[in-house]
Design a protein around this nucleic acid. Structure first.
Lengths: 113, 113
DNA sequence: GGATTACTTAGCCATATGGATAACAATTTG
DNA sequence: CAAATTGTTATCCATATGGCTAAGTAATCC
């Protein structure tokens, strides 16, 4: 793992890595299968897996010569919660603005007789 | 704006930028106020604002010599939805596994008389 | 046991990123 | 108008990132 949001968002900021996550939600898979759809060299692809693993998004164990990778859902939930808090904070503010606008039918205005 | 998730997650992968977003959920603010709590030079900070703006997370307009920045909530929602889809896909799979486990009380097993 | 398979490690390279300083607008304000 | 505010632009620098090739190592297969 690592220090939360930094490494999490960093890990998700790449299409190859997001594709891996999307694939892994349908179940665990060996490295070779994860690599197949991506048109980059294996060592380059392995770096992406390391980033995902360092961010705690993925775990893997090697059995025989095959390394099987599976997703770790918790970090997704953490980030989702963070985003949700931000949006909620924002919309609470919008609500307050609406209240202010609604209460705008009488105060010190002199040019509407 | 830009091409969605890439620039969005990239923008969120930095604590300074996340702090700016958190601040902006409490309402718009001028550049100087946003910069104040961060111990980096103004030009460095401006780069962060540009990243946020390029990702469509933030918008700003300059009036007089003051530039006021405000948050743009939609991209947050988009990313949140993406994360949610992934988690839902993942937990649907878990559900199926549970069903399999539950149905494991009678099939072709010969050693439980 | 030699050949395949499935990764791993080690280096190299180009570009991107996050920070700094210096110098330059463009607006207020005294 | 001179001075202070508030940004903005232009460089520069060190490190991180994403890709590559070449050369291993450790299982399995024939």
């Amino acid at each position: 793992m690592d220090n939360n949001l930094d490494s999490f968002f960093g890990a998700m900021a790449d299409p190859t890595r997001r594709a891996v996550i999307e694939r892994l939600t349908r179940g665990p898979a060996p490295v070779s299968e994860l690599h197949a759809p991506h048109d980059i060299a294996l060592p380059s692809f392995l770096k992406h897996l390391k980033v995902l693993e360092a961010a705690g998004l993925v775990r893997s164990e090697k059995i025989g010569r095959v390394r099987t990778v599976h997703i770790e859902a918790a970090p997704l939930a953490t980030a989702e919660a963070w985003l949700n808090r931000q949006r909620r904070g924002w919309s609470r503010r919008l609500d307050r603005l609406e209240q202010l606008a609604a209460a705008d039918n009488d105060p010190q205005q002199k040019d509407t007789p």
